[in-house]
């Protein structure tokens, strides 16, 4: 599904190159649940963002279902993550000015899903995540765990093949964290590929593969 060849990421500042990622060669197959681990500043998030096509590598090749992502234009990239990829963030990143319902609806709007079908999809995930009662609340009226539930719901509402999660439980206490991880696990069981960045051994164990990053290098 994902194939990275010689991916490097560096910033140039007055002739000094600062490396974030070095010579990343990596293949992830459909249906995997991968955890990326490593100390702070190791480049975990950057790697995740590159795989999510939100960041571009300085060098190297990236194939998504054998399509060369590194050669794509903005429009194609946008099309890809709109339909294939869902994101979950540590800070939830919901749109503050929209209600739960509207937040969930937004990705479908961008995918130009018809009104009636949209309503059906939103109702379905609200049900699935047990947040029907919260549908008209704004994000700041929810607890962190509830916000992250919405975050995950929003990530899967477009039926993506791949979910990228950047420390999804980082801001939650353990009960809420466990709930989120269970959901991710069950999504994986149904066939969705999941890649998460995490600091927690416990969370990493929900997955079936661990990639360790250190100073930008992979130590598998």
């Amino acid at each position: 599904m994902i194939k990275l060849k010689g991916i490097e990421k560096y910033y140039t500042n007055k002739f000094i190159k600062t490396y974030v990622l070095r010579q990343i060669n990596l293949e992830i197959k459909e249906g995997e649940f991968v955890s990326i681990m490593g100390p702070s500043g190791a480049g975990k998030s950057t790697l995740l963002y590159i795989m999510g096509m939100l960041d571009t590598p300085s060098k190297g090749e990236y194939y998504f279902f054998d399509e060369p992502v590194h050669k794509m234009k903005e429009r194609q990239l946008s099309e890809l993550h709109k339909t294939q990829i869902g994101f979950v963030f540590q800070q939830y990143h919901l749109i503050d000015d929209l209600t739960v319902y509207e937040n969930l609806e937004t990705p479908l709007l961008y995918q130009k899903v018809k009104g009636s079908e949209r309503k059906g999809r939103v109702a379905e995930v609200l049900d699935q995540f047990n947040i029907v009662a919260k549908r008209d609340l704004f994000p700041n009226q929810l607890s962190g765990g509830q916000q992250q539930l919405v975050g995950v719901a929003r990530a899967i509402i477009g039926n993506p093949k791949l979910i990228l999660a950047d420390e999804p439980t980082g801001n939650l206490h353990s009960d809420q964290g466990r709930e989120i991880m269970e959901i991710l696990k069950s999504l994986n069981d149904k066939g969705t590929t999941i890649i998460q960045v995490t600091h927690s051994e416990v969370n990493a164990n929900y997955g079936n593969r661990i990639i360790n990053l250190n100073d930008g290098w992979i130590e598998e």
Binding site: L54, E74, D96
Partner: peptide, 16 residues
């Protein structure tokens, strides 16, 4: 800025 980021993640084009 955050909203812009999220919308882009959710599939908005710059033009949108």
């Amino acid at each position: 800025a955050k909203e812009v980021g999220i919308r882009k993640v959710l599939g908005s084009y710059k033009k949108g």
